[in-house]
Design a protein around this nucleic acid. Structure first.
Lengths: 195, 195
DNA sequence: GGAATGACAGATATTGAAATCTGTCATCGC
DNA sequence: GCGATGACAGATTTCAATATCTGTCATTCC
């Protein structure tokens, strides 16, 4: 009713994302976020203890969208594990590349978090590796993969494909040959997994 | 005879390396280098057209030491290709890790070059990939490897092991589990190569 | 004659003062 | 009573003046 809806964490996150998109992580301030919401910056601090916590929450939400999309792929039934694993990495690569290209400022925010050693990124990687582990274990169960230690194998797969999902390589993702290079690496890894 | 030997490019490189080691790439100046040599900075410019060229020459020399050591390994006769490839990557990892740990300032200089998109680094990578290609081709000849396109395969191997030689990951090379992770990745790749 | 010098202009980096921002909290208003 | 406010202190960033550095070149010196 009132022109001012109640101030929720969700609304603050929305506004923060908008401000980050517009100004980037270097210029965005908590006062900017408060201004967008038409409140004082003190009110923002009622919901997020620090600016870093706010930044983390935005990134967490942003990363969880990728996690969810990949989780669906992971859970898909009746699909051979090798094909599934290939599709999973291709999708991850595509998602990261898309984010780097279309949301450069939010992507930069994500990189700030990496430098800060925030647990959010570590956790994100943990979730992703766990999805890989799940596909590897499935492949081993169906005797398509040899993987004595699915956990270590999943991590190895993730490490070996770093060039295609680690933000440090984002500038290289525009090269026209990058798709071919991706296929060469994933092809080699899948061969290595074969039972 | 004279207290002052003639000023050669080699002597300048030596002095530059010393200065870089002491002050790091951010603080080292051409005047510092000249002071170490007891000459005016104008004399340094007689041998190197710009400061960037000097920095490049130092790094090139530094990188070529690694290239030479690995070339010996590559050329070793009577050694199975899989074993050779494993040793090659282990040696590269060890060399890079050693440089990052023992020569942090020179390592930082190397990273400056990467940001400058200097051809020196690209060339270094080219030389390394060519060595890998040579081992892969040898393995294919001896029917130990399946590698329809040794060049693409070499690049894929290099890409897949980025985490263990790309300076961007240097901070991670202190983790105690890194060796295990290296072995997991290389093991998987060697399996993928097997004929 | 040819290498070395050092004064110089323009570019880059440093510094310190002023402005802005973060995070707190006593107070306000519903 | 409880969330919102805005004044405030300390931390951080910005900005402009100052200092240093890079790269050139006319001149010096062997």
């Amino acid at each position: 009713m009132a022109a001012t809806e109640t101030l929720t964490a969700e609304r603050i996150l929305e506004a923060t994302e908008e401000v980050l998109r517009r100004y980037g992580p270097a210029k965005a301030t908590v006062v900017d976020v408060a201004r967008v919401l038409g409140v004082s910056h003190g009110s923002v601090y009622r919901h997020f203890r620090t600016k870093a916590a706010l930044r983390e929450a935005v990134t967490e939400r942003w990363l969880s969208r990728t996690e969810t999309a990949l989780a669906e792929l992971t859970a898909a039934p009746d699909r051979p594990a090798p094909e599934k694993l290939h599709a999973w990495f291709a999708h991850l690569f595509e998602a990261k590349r898309h984010k780097a290209g279309d949301d450069p400022e939010l992507f930069a925010t994500y990189n700030v978090l990496i430098d800060e050693n925030s647990g959010v990124v570590e956790q994100h990687i943990g979730v992703l590796i766990d999805q890989v582990r799940s596909i590897v274990a499935e492949g081993a169960r169906e005797a398509e993969f040899t993987a004595p230690d699915p956990d270590a194998t999943a991590r190895a797969l993730f490490d070996a494909t770093s060039r295609f999902h680690d933000p440090a390589y984002a500038p290289e993702w525009r090269r026209p040959t990058i798709e071919t290079e991706f296929e060469a690496v994933v092809g080699l890894l899948l061969r290595g997994l074969r039972a």
